[in-house]
Amino acid sequence: MKKSGIILSSIILSSSLLFAGKSSFINQDTKVFMKSDAKKEIGKIDTATPIEVLSSIGNFREIKVTGWASYGFENVLFKDIGQRIFYLVLKDNKTKKAKELAKGTDSFGSEWRKVSYKVWVNKTSLSKKINDIDKKGQELFASRCGACHASPEVQHYTANQWPSIIEAMKPRAGLSSQEAQFINKYLQRKTVKGSNHE
């Protein structure tokens, strides 16, 4: 891997090394930018996405996101092959060039690509610990998803299914889009461990 090279270039670019090379998480759905001046918005990155901080200029951080995408749709990154936990959605396939890391095929015969991107985000959307993000989702799930009906068990739906379920229930549970995302990400993380579905 060329990790050292990336870090080296980030040392040259950055005015601060506070976060450089560190693993971190996106703490809320946020815009991603082409450059540190935040002038050109190129897409969005999802809550709870694991990232690596490469460099820092002012309030902005350059981050690396790695995930799996359907072949031909490399601008939409998921956690894994066939596991649709959204990471990064860029507006198109051209503005940013993906770095291809691996190839794969899912059980339905569709081709996937493991790719990474380097993009810029505001530093306020980064957190060092996933637990803080998870906790928000856990609390919201407990307090909002058992008001009309009995609270469903986390394993009742799969990681792929949960976002559709939450999207449907969002207005009735009194959830803002961001709150729904906290719940989604919490449920998806929990479901992935020990699902019997696929």
Partner: peptide, 19 residues
């Protein structure tokens, strides 16, 4: 359908289900 996958394992409507 690629940008807006469904919540199924395939992301599509499953007329038969492996699960």
């Amino acid at each position: 359908p690629m940008l807006n996958p469904l919540g199924t394992p395939s992301g599509k409507i499953e007329i038969s289900s492996r699960v």
